[in-house]
Design a protein around this nucleic acid. Structure first.
Length: 944
DNA sequence: AGTCAGACTTGGGAGCAACGCC
DNA sequence: GGCGTTGCTCCCAAGTCTGACT
C-alpha cells in the first residue's frame, strides 16, 4: 500500500460527522442489553462529552501560547530540554486557563443541570440511538460492500457483536484481504474528503500549535526518543534478522508454554511480521536515532543484540545464586527452580525457619562524626525480615492486629476578637461554624483556587449551609465578603510559627514524637510496625485537581462516630475519644486497613493503613514486581498476539489489540470510565477521537499519531508517535464516522481488556505493562549508560538519567521548582569561578614546570604540589558541571514516582552493588526502609 | 452481564527540617 | 550563627482493579 495523502489530510476524518453521537458512546456495551441505570448513564455521558470537547479546546489553545514562551526560555538547553519544555509549558498553560475560565465554568454548570433535566428524555431516546448505531454500522458495511462485492463479512459487522463473533468464527481468512483492500479504499475516500469543512478551524489551529511545538522541540533528544520510541518502526522493519536469537526465541517460547503459559493462540505465522523482527527490540526500549555519545543507533543495536543473547540466559545466574545461597540441590526440576525464584511472594516452597527480629546493619559508608553515628544507630533498628518467612496464601492479611485508633484533628480555635470579618463593609460576628469555614477560605485567599468560579460557587454554597439562619439571610454575595483580616491573621500565625525559638521547636518536636510513638505504630502478628497515616484528615475545602467540578466544597470534620475501627478480637480495642464512640469496630483480617471513614465530598472511603516499610505493603510491592518479571517472560508472545489481532475480523478484538499496543509501547494507563462529577481526564481505553490526530507523514516520519490529552491528575500527555501502518489504518477505521467527542475505542473498556489479559497470563492487568516497561527500561538504560570506570558522581548522573528516561516514559512531570532559574544562575557563577581557578592553577603549573626543569629538588616538589592542586580543582569543576546538567535535566521531570512505584528496587540495588555506588546515594532513609527486602535479597548479578 | 463499593496503588505539591556555605 | 537551598515527609487526590451484589 502506498502513501497517497499528504500528512494533514487524515485530520478530516475526525470531522466526518454523521450519525448519532451516542451510537459510539454506547458502543462499549454494544449489543448487550443494559440496565436502565446504565442506559441513562451512557446517554448522559454523550452530552458531557460535548462539554469536554469545549474544555479541551480551551486547553489546547492555551497550550499554544505557553509552548512558544517556554521555547524562548529553554532555547539554550542541551540534551533533554525539549521534551521538558512541553511539560512545563503545559502546566503553566493549564493554570492560565484556570484563571480565565470562570464564565466557561458557570456555563458548564448550567449545562450540567440542563443535562440532568434532559436525562429522562435521553433515556427515552436511547432505543432510537441504538437503532442509529445499528444503522451506522450497516452504512459502514454497505459502503464497503459497494467497493468490494465480496465483502459479506462486513455485512455481518452491522449486526450485534455477539452475532458477529459467531459469524466470523466461521468465516474464511479471505477477510483479511478484504480489510486490506478496505484500508486502501478508505485512503481513496479520504482524498475525496479533503475539502471537508471539519478540518477547518480546530485542525488548523492545532496544526499551528503543533508546528510551534515542533520548533520548540528542536533536535530530537535522548529522552524524547525513549518516550516516543520513534524508531520502533525502524527497528521492526529494518533490523537485520538475527538467526541465533530466533532460535533462542523459539526455545524460550517453548519453555514458556511448558512453563504453563496459556496465552491465546498466537498466529504469528499468519502475521506480516516475524517474531525475530521485534524480539530484539522490546517496545519499551528503542534505539535512538541520531543522538550524541550514548545514543548511536549502531551502538544500540549492538547492545540490543548483546541483550538478546544474554536475555536467554538471564535466569541462570540468579538460579545459581539462589542455589548456592540456600545450598539446596534441585537439579532435576527446572520449573520448580524457576518458581522458587520468581514466585516467592506467593509461596515459598521450602519452609524457611521463622526469623526473629534481627539487628540489621545497614550499608552506610558514613564517617564517624557524631551526627552520622547517631544516624547509623537509628538505622540499626530492629527489622522484621518477613521476606524470609513463609507466606500465607489464604487471603488473610494478619492474625493479630492491635493499635490505638486514629488521631483526630484538633478542635477549632475561634479567632481572636480583634480579627474581623466584614460583609459589604460592615463588621459581622460570625457563628463559630461559619467562622471556621470562612477561615478555610481565608487561608486560601492567595491561592489560584479562589480565582475559579467553580471553587467560589461550591464554597459559597457549602458555607451558607453551615451559617445560622440570620447569617444566611444577610450573606448572599461572596464578592461582598472581606476575608482580608482573617487572611492576614493566619499569615501572621504562620510567620510566628516559622520564627519559633529553638526551645519551642524542640518542645514541639518532642510532643510530635510522643504522638508518633503513641498513635504511629501498631502491633501486627507480634511485630511493631509503623502506620502510614494515623491522622484523620482535618476539615477544609476540597482541592480537586484540574477542572474538578467539586473543588471548593466543604470537607467536613470527621467525628469518631464516622470511623470504623479494624483490629483483632483478642487485641486491646482502641478507645474512642471521651464522650464519643466509634461507628463500628470490626475484626476483618482480609483487609489491611486499621480505620476507615467515608469522606463527604465524593463519598469515597478513606483508610488508615500501614507505612510502606511494613510487611503488608512490602510483600505486595514484591509481588507486583514478580508479576512484571513474569510478564517479561511472555511479553513476546503477547506482542505477537496483539499484532496479529490488528487484523482480526471483529472490531472489538482490533480495538483491544491497538489499545494494548499503546499501553505496552507508551506505558499509558488503562483509563477507566469516569463520572461527570469528576475532572475530565482519560487513559487509554477512555481516549476520545479528539485526543489523537493522525498524520500520514509528519516531520519526515510516516504514520504519526499525535496524542494530546489530560491524563491522571489533569497532567497533559503530549506525544508524537510514529506507529506501524496497520495501527494507523486501524485508527482511521476506529475514527470513521465519529465525532470528536466519541470514544476512540468504543467497543472496549478496562474490564474486558483486563479479562483478556488475564487469559494471556494469570495476574496480568494493564497496569503491569507500566511496571514492566518502567523496570526493563531502567535496567537497560543503566546497562547502556553506566561506564564501569567512571567516578561515583558520574555513575550517579548515569543512574539519574536512566531514572529520568523512565519518568519520561511514564509522563511523570512536575512544575519547575520556584527558585530554579535563580539557583541555576548561582551554580553557573560558581562553575565560572571554579573555571577561573582552574585556569589560574594551569598557569601556575606551567611556570612551576618550567622552573622545575631547570631547577632544584625543591622546585620539583612545588611543581608536583601544583599538579595535584590542579587535579583537585578539575575534579571539583567536573562535579559542579555534572550537578548543573543533572539539575537542569531534572527541572520538569519528577523522578520520585517512578522510583517509588515502578522500578523494581532490586535493579537499583544490584547496580549499586555491582558498581560500588553506596545505596544511600540512590535511596534516602525512607526509601531504604521501604525497599529493605530488596536491599537484603538482591545481589550484584540480579536481573529483572 | 453490568454496576458499584471497597481496597489498594499512584501521584504531585506544600511546607518544613536539614544541610551547606560564608 | 545566619541564610539560602535542597530534599524529605506528609497530605490527600486520583487512579486501578476486584469481587459482591443485582
Amino acid at each position: 500500500m502506498s502513501v497517497e495523502n499528504p500528512a494533514s489530510d487524515n485530520d478530516c476524518d475526525a470531522g466526518k460527522v454523521n450519525g448519532n453521537k451516542s451510537e459510539h458512546v454506547n458502543g462499549v456495551h454494544n449489543g448487550y442489553s443494559s440496565s436502565e441505570k446504565h442506559k441513562s448513564k451512557s446517554s448522559h455521558k454523550s452530552s458531557s462529552k460535548d462539554k469536554h470537547r469545549d474544555k479541551d479546546r480551551d486547553h489546547k489553545s492555551s497550550s499554544k501560547h505557553s509552548s512558544s514562551s517556554s521555547r524562548d526560555k529553554d532555547k539554550d538547553k542541551e540534551k533533554y530540554s525539549s521534551s521538558k519544555s512541553h511539560s512545563s509549558s503545559h502546566k503553566s498553560s493549564s493554570k492560565d486557563k484556570d484563571r480565565g475560565d470562570h464564565k466557561d465554568r458557570s456555563d458548564k454548570n448550567k449545562e450540567r443541570s440542563d443535562k440532568e433535566r434532559d436525562r429522562s428524555d435521553k433515556d427515552k431516546h436511547r432505543s432510537d440511538k441504538e437503532k442509529h448505531r445499528e444503522k451506522s454500522d450497516k452504512e459502514r458495511s454497505d459502503k464497503d460492500k459497494h467497493k468490494h462485492s465480496s465483502s459479506d463479512g462486513d455485512k455481518k459487522s452491522s449486526s450485534k457483536d455477539k452475532d458477529k463473533e459467531r459469524e466470523h468464527k466461521s468465516s474464511s481468512s479471505s477477510k483479511d484481504k478484504e480489510y486490506k483492500s478496505k484500508d486502501r479504499d478508505r485512503d481513496h475516500e479520504k482524498d475525496h474528503h479533503r475539502s471537508d469543512k471539519h478540518r477547518s478551524d480546530k485542525h488548523s489551529s492545532s496544526k499551528d500549535r503543533h508546528s510551534s511545538k515542533n520548533k520548540e522541540k528542536g533536535s530530537s533528544d535522548h529522552l524524547d526518543k525513549i518516550k516516543s520510541e520513534s524508531d520502533y518502526q525502524e527497528c521492526v522493519v529494518k533490523e537485520e534478522p538475527m538467526q541465533v536469537n530466533e532460535a533462542e526465541v523459539k526455545r524460550e517460547i517453548k519453555e514458556e508454554s511448558e512453563d504453563g503459559f496459556t496465552g491465546a493462540n498466537t498466529t504469528a505465522s499468519s502475521c506480516d511480521y516475524s517474531m525475530s523482527q521485534f524480539k530484539d527490540e522490546p517496545l519499551s526500549e528503542l534505539p535512538p536515532e541520531e543522538d550524541s555519545e550514548e545514543d548511536t543507533p549502531l551502538l544500540e543495536r549492538m547492545a540490543a543484540k548483546k541483550r538478546a543473547a544474554s536475555e536467554s540466559e538471564e535466569d541462570t545466574p540468579l538460579l545459581q545464586r539462589k542455589k548456592s545461597k540456600k545450598k539446596v540441590k534441585k537439579e532435576t526440576n527446572y520449573d520448580d527452580d524457576m518458581e522458587d525464584d520468581d514466585d516467592v511472594p506467593k509461596k515459598k516452597k521450602k519452609k524457611v525457619e521463622k526469623t526473629r527480629p534481627v539487628k540489621v546493619k545497614t550499608e552506610t559508608d558514613d564517617g564517624p562524626s557524631p551526627t552520622k553515628r547517631k544516624k547509623k544507630q537509628e538505622e540499626e533498628q530492629e527489622v522484621w525480615k518477613w521476606w524470609e518467612e513463609e507466606k500465607k496464601d489464604d487471603g488473610t492479611k494478619w492474625t493479630f492486629l492491635e493499635h490505638k485508633g486514629p488521631l483526630f484533628a484538633p478542635d477549632y480555635e475561634p479567632l481572636p476578637e480583634n480579627v474581623k470579618f466584614r460583609y459589604d463593609g460592615k463588621i459581622i460576628k460570625l457563628s463559630q461554624d461559619a467562622e471556621e469555614v470562612a477561615g478555610f477560605y481565608a487561608r486560601m485567599l492567595d491561592h489560584d483556587y479562589t480565582t475559579k468560579a467553580t471553587f467560589n460557587n461550591n464554597f459559597f454554597a457549602d458555607w451558607r449551609k453551615v451559617m445560622t439562619h440570620e447569617e444566611a439571610k444577610l450573606i448572599k454575595d461572596l464578592s461582598k465578603c472581606d476575608f482580608k483580616e482573617m487572611s492576614a491573621y493566619f499569615a501572621s500565625v504562620a510567620e510566628k510559627n516559622r520564627n519559633r525559638t529553638k526551645e519551642e521547636k524542640a518542645a514541639l518536636k518532642a510532643k510530635n514524637e510522643e504522638i508518633q510513638k503513641e498513635y504511629g505504630f501498631c502491633t501486627i502478628d507480634g511485630h511493631k510496625e509503623k502506620i502510614g497515616n494515623f491522622r484523620i484528615e482535618p476539615p477544609g475545602l476540597f482541592r480537586g485537581r484540574g477542572e474538578h467540578p467539586k473543588m471548593g466544597m466543604l470537607k467536613k470534620r470527621v467525628m469518631p462516630e464516622d470511623v470504623l475501627i479494624n483490629c483483632s478480637k483478642d487485641s486491646k480495642i482502641p478507645k474512642a475519644p471521651p464522650g464519643h464512640k466509634w461507628k463500628e469496630v470490626r475484626h476483618d483480617n482480609t483487609v489491611t486497613w486499621l480505620a476507615s471513614w467515608t469522606e463527604n465530598v465524593q463519598g469515597q472511603a478513606k483508610y488508615v493503613m500501614l507505612n510502606p516499610s511494613s510487611k503488608l505493603k512490602g510483600e505486595k510491592d514484591w509481588q507486583k514486581y514478580e508479576t512484571a518479571r513474569k510478564l517479561h517472560k511472555c511479553i513476546d508472545k503477547i506482542r505477537d498476539t496483539y499484532r496479529s489481532d490488528w487484523k482480526a475480523k471483529e472490531m472489538r478484538v482490533r480495538q483491544r489489540a491497538v489499545a494494548l499496543y499503546f499501553i505496552d509501547r507508551l506505558a499509558l494507563r488503562a483509563g477507566n470510565e469516569k463520572d461527570d462529577d469528576q475532572a475530565d481526564t482519560v487513559g487509554c481505553c477512555s481516549l476520545r477521537v479528539e485526543h489523537i490526530q493522525l498524520h500520514k507523514e509528519k516531520d519526515g516520519k510516516e504514520y504519526v499519531v499525535v496524542f494530546d490529552f489530560l491524563g491522571k491528575d489533569s497532567i497533559r500527555y503530549y506525544n508524537e508517535v510514529p506507529v506501524e501502518k496497520r495501527v494507523f489504518k486501524n485508527l482511521e477505521l476506529f475514527m470513521e464516522n465519529k465525532k470528536d467527542s466519541d470514544d476512540l475505542f468504543d467497543r472496549l473498556n478496562t474490564q474486558t481488556l483486563n479479562e483478556h489479559l488475564k487469559d494471556l497470563m494469570p495476574g496480568l492487568t494493564a497496569k503491569v505493562f507500566r511496571t514492566y516497561n518502567a523496570s526493563i527500561t531502567l535496567q537497560r538504560q543503566l546497562d547502556e549508560l553506566t561506564d564501569p570506570d567512571a567516578s561515583i558522581p558520574e555513575k550517579i548522573l548515569a543512574y539519574n538519567r536512566a531514572n529520568r528516561a523512565v519518568a519520561v516514559l511514564c509522563n511523570h512531570q512536575r512544575a519547575v521548582p520556584k527558585g530554579h532559574s535563580k539557583s541555576m544562575e548561582a551554580l553557573k557563577e560558581k562553575i565560572q569561578a571554579k573555571r577561573d581557578q582552574v585556569d589560574e592553577a594551569e598557569e601556575d603549573l606551567r611556570e612551576a614546570t618550567k622552573a622545575a626543569k631547570r631547577g632544584s629538588v625543591k622546585e620539583k616538589i612545588a611543581c608536583d604540589k601544583k599538579k595535584k592542586a590542579l587535579e583537585r580543582l578539575k575534579e571539583q569543576l567536573k562535579k559542579l558541571e555534572l550537578q548543573e546538567t543533572d539539575r537542569d535535566e531534572n527541572k520538569t521531570i519528577a523522578l520520585g514516582t517512578s522510583k517509588l512505584n515502578y522500578l523494581d528496587p532490586r535493579i537499583s540495588v544490584a547496580w549499586c552493588k555491582k558498581h560500588g555506588v553506596p545505596i544511600e546515594k540512590i535511596y534516602n532513609k525512607t526509601q531504604r526502609d521501604k525497599f529493605r527486602w530488596a536491599i537484603d535479597m538482591a545481589g550484584p548479578e540480579y536481573i529483572f
